[in-house]
Design a protein around this nucleic acid. Structure first.
Lengths: 225, 225
DNA sequence: GCGCTTTAACCTGTATACAAGTACACAACG
DNA sequence: CGTTGTGTACTTGTATACAGGTTAAAGCGC
């Protein structure tokens, strides 16, 4: 599986290399402990060291690798670290939703409705890539609408990992059949419904439910793989 | 005011340039809206574009500037954005302390005691730089001890800004006299005391108090400047 | 065979070079 | 005077070159 070319439109070589490497690390094609050298990667991708250097810095900022004196060592994402990523996602979305509950939500609700429509369409066409992307956009839209510069920055620092992870897990979900896919859509609808009510406690409860459910699903998925 | 040279030991040129620029932006020497060019900065610092490029990426990741097609535009930190930064700090420390309350805290308590001693010493010698650094280390130590890879990553994405901000505010505090300095030390002692008790609710209350107080102090400080 | 020294390959950090694209000013023209 | 076109200067993204340092292994003495 390669990184969807459509997601790389307008990206520089450095970003593209970062995306490819990130996906390889998340899928386990590149294993934890492995050592990466700028020269070797540059040779592999047929580029110079400059974009590779940029890519390695990106992955280092994301915590997927650690830059050392010589070479970069791959840290990878084990099950526990994925859990921790979900901790952070929950922390961010919980904060953001609390904030949204005190704001005008008309705009975000309309956007989320459209996104759910697109998810439904992608499910119909069995387009896992598009589905994963819309799933991603659903959450990104909510976070963006809270209009909190620092929270947005936190999101930026994990968004690419989240996207790559969604791509992988969505493809697993699609293999499990349509009822599983529908459940994912339903989960998002519940979040949207909570936002519509504007009830702070209910929204928080919905978000908690969402992540608890995702958590369990994820572990089952890990157990199988 | 320049960035303390002692804090740059072992740093690459790129990191050093990032620190200098960051401080200039936070102090307002470089104002929001201003446009930065790699070439001009490289000329100013007497280096090539490579480290400057790295520095600009760092500042972009930190949300202090925005990289555009041509030139980078300075975003700066107004009062509201500092508030938002404190939102994030509170979010992180609150999470971390909850986690710590369920862990063995002996090690972190000893470390924090030592840090408070160093703060007291720095206060005695009126060494604002050292005081700011120990203040910073106090919080960083707490976060590190929670041993949560993703939370640590979030912290990493704001730690340099926090450090620079602490340097600026600490120097203001030092100008206001010793009683203000002692209050800062006392605030940290309260946090430490909360950690000693291990009582979850009390710890959370202490952390909330700390940030509410910092919040108010900060706004007063902003009002004066 | 084992340990020490030396050397050679390789790595990163930084500098420089080149190419493609963008903005802006200025001039020519309607 | 307004508009359009062109040219120039400056920008970033990428490639290449160089310097200093680290690793590792090859070679040699024992």
């Amino acid at each position: 599986m390669a990184y969807p070319a459509a997601w790389l439109r307008g990206a520089s070589l450095g970003e593209a290399i970062a995306c490819e490497l990130r996906l390889s690390i998340i899928m386990g094609t590149i294993k934890g402990g492995e050592k990466l050298s700028e020269n070797r990667i540059a040779a592999d991708f047929g580029t110079s060291r400059s974009p590779v250097r940029e890519a390695l810095r990106t992955l280092s900022d994301e915590g997927l690798i650690r830059l050392e004196r010589m070479g970069a060592v791959v840290l990878g994402l084990n099950e526990e670290e994925v859990d921790e990523l979900f901790d952070v996602r929950y922390l961010i979305e919980s904060f953001v939703q609390e904030r949204l509950s005190r704001m005008d939500r008309d705009s975000v609700i309309i956007q989320l409705e459209r996104i759910i429509d697109k998810m439904t369409l992608a499910a119909k066409h069995l387009d896992a890539e598009e589905f994963a992307y819309q799933d991603f956009m659903f959450h990104e839209t909510i976070i963006a609408e809270a209009k909190h510069s620092r929270i947005w920055q936190l999101w930026r620092s994990i968004r690419q990992i989240v996207l790559a992870l969604m791509l992988v897990t969505t493809q697993r979900v699609f293999k499990e059949g349509p009822e599983r896919i529908d459940r994912v859509i339903a989960k998002h609808s519940v979040i949207l419904q909570g936002l519509r009510t504007g009830n702070k406690e209910e929204i928080q409860q919905q978000v908690r439910n969402y992540f608890e459910d995702s958590f369990i699903t994820l572990h089952n998925s890990f157990g199988q793989s």
